[in-house]
Nucleic acid binder design. Structure first.
Lengths: 313, 313
DNA sequence: CATTCCATGTAGTGGAATTACAGGAGCGTG
DNA sequence: CACGCTCCTGTAATTCCACTACATGGAATG
């Protein structure tokens, strides 16, 4: 298996090395193990150093790189650098009971970054474009979902409400179904379910479609829900392998919402901007002007204090 | 100014080059501009190639690297590779009206990844540890916040509810205040506000503290809210520079919640695990078993279909 | 037991990064 | 306005490092 399939996220390199272990020659495997044991050491090292650390000769290091599908040591190192920048995915560095807070923090951030890296590589931008068009053509938007996907729905509702068209994300199952039942061909329904198998969401999608609404499905994988949808947005992330793996699909889903919202904002253009900033300025009144506000929140970040518009909408 | 301050996120490299522009010599600046114009070209190139592309001599390229604080060309290229892996932050590649969906998607994902990269570098793990201890010692947890921060509160509530202790995240302002007013020394209140200036959140924090509760403040910068808190968690991300910049602080906040939840789960240990998996299995009943479920959602991902526990809680 | 093939190390080579040095442009000063 | 100094910037030489050709040793197989 070649490790240089660039479509599969920079972070997959270490995983690819692990997978390739059985196919490698004995001494090449020593190199692989040295790299896996301490990727950042391998980054600093040159061929000679990595050879010494692995107790093999220099050509073996080169052969190791070739075996993985790289042109040479340098190109291997570049890819390794990218993998290290993103951090190790959970699959590569499992979370353990005895991890310190530092380790745990690093691992979870790394894993989250990796998930977004994967999602961005796998995103179907044509479908995103279709979704944007559908939203632009709509008169009202309904977001539905439960659990973690419900959080995404709430977030989406907050963002799209700024565009000034009716926009709902009921939490209650019945309300979701009612909203779907009163939808029209002018409605866009965004049905969110990471599994794509949540029965209630499928029901809502089907109901809305019967009413002529355009249904956009957001799932983590190709799933039954998408059969009930006009547009399929698949947000592919690592599987959540065990109970304690943080739920990264949710993050990728939120970024997708950002993409949609930003695209719509761009399409709406400049005149819409004015309304938006007026509204955001109005929100500023909810901020504190108390006496203990002596410590300017931005005192340590001079660049930010000019014309900054906060996001706490 | 040295660009090799490793504490400041891999992605800061291009920003650092931009900042260094005025301090560079004329011909070095040409190199800098070539790199900024097309970072991925610079990645593939060697000294000669980069020199030719910049219309300067090879030593000038080396001097450029030295001027930025690197040992040489190779170490510069490694850092550049890492910056490219993370993608360009918005500050480096602004979103424009004429961006295609592809470009927009790439930019927003890149920007989000960058934000998490920054946040992970800036995270105060000692404070995280203190927060985990406080939560473990508590009998009930209250999450408060509005807008985007309210989304984080909802998400946190979903996660911490799994630990089997009373756990609330009222949306309603009055309910938040009431909950704070009925809190006790056994309560942990997590007050979330990206600006750290939201008056209502500050009020709630103060009220809870008067009642003896332990208050954990989550903000995006050092802010007035933290004065009312026992433990300060600052989730530092890029400022959201303009209206159409996606709100990344929210993502980093969610990852912080993941860190807290995972840490608590680890501390609770194995016996807690059993309850958790029982509960998750019970949730499976909400999934569809319909006839059109012919297309197995996991059909294209064999590894995932074994004993997978879904996250749609 | 012999032979062949494959893995791995040794030694050498080519190329790339780096350094030493010299020419030249710009600027300040007499 | 001219002279000289300083600081760039390119040329040429050097050193280091990745990579290749080849040889040796061991394992597997007949």
């Amino acid at each position: 298996m070649s490790a240089s399939r660039d479509s599969s996220g920079y972070s997959q390199l270490l995983q690819a090395i692990s997978n390739a272990l059985p196919d490698l020659r004995n001494s090449e495997r020593k190199v692989a193990e040295t790299v896996l044991a301490d990727p950042s050491f391998a980054l600093e090292a040159n061929v000679a150093g990595l050879a010494r650390a692995s107790n093999v000769s220099e050509p073996t290091v080169i052969r190791f790189c070739s075996a993985l599908g790289f042109d040479g040591f340098s190109s291997f190192k570049l890819r390794l650098a990218q993998a290290v920048a993103l951090g190790l995915p959970i699959s590569q560095s499992a979370i353990g009971i005895d991890d310190t807070i530092d380790e745990l923090t690093a691992k979870i951030f790394d894993h989250s970054i990796n998930a977004l890296d994967q999602a961005r590589k796998a995103m179907d931008t044509a479908a995103v474009g279709a979704a944007v068009q559908a939203i632009l053509a709509s008169r009202e938007i309904l977001f539905v979902g439960f659990g973690a996907s419900g959080i995404i729905a709430q977030d989406a509702q907050q963002k799209f409400a700024l565009f000034g068209r009716p926009c709902a994300a009921p939490i209650d199952l019945h309300q979701q179904y009612i909203a779907a039942s009163t939808s029209s061909p002018d409605t866009v329904v965004v049905a969110i379910s990471n599994t794509g198998t949540t029965a209630a969401v499928i029901d809502v999608a089907r109901r809305a479609r019967e009413r002529g609404a355009t249904v956009i499905g957001v799932t983590g994988t190709s799933a039954p829900l998408l059969a009930e949808c006009d547009i399929s947005l698949i947000v592919r992330t690592d599987e959540d392998t065990d109970l304690h793996t943080p739920t990264v699909s949710r993050l990728a889903g939120l970024v997708l919402i950002d993409v949609l919202a930003t695209s719509v904002a761009m399409a709406l253009g400049v005149d819409h901007l004015h309304n938006l900033s007026t509204m955001k300025e109005a929100l500023a009144q909810f901020r504190s002007n108390e006496s203990e506000t002596k410590t300017d929140p931005d005192i340590d970040r001079p660049a930010a204090s000019v014309g900054r518009i906060q996001e706490e909408q």
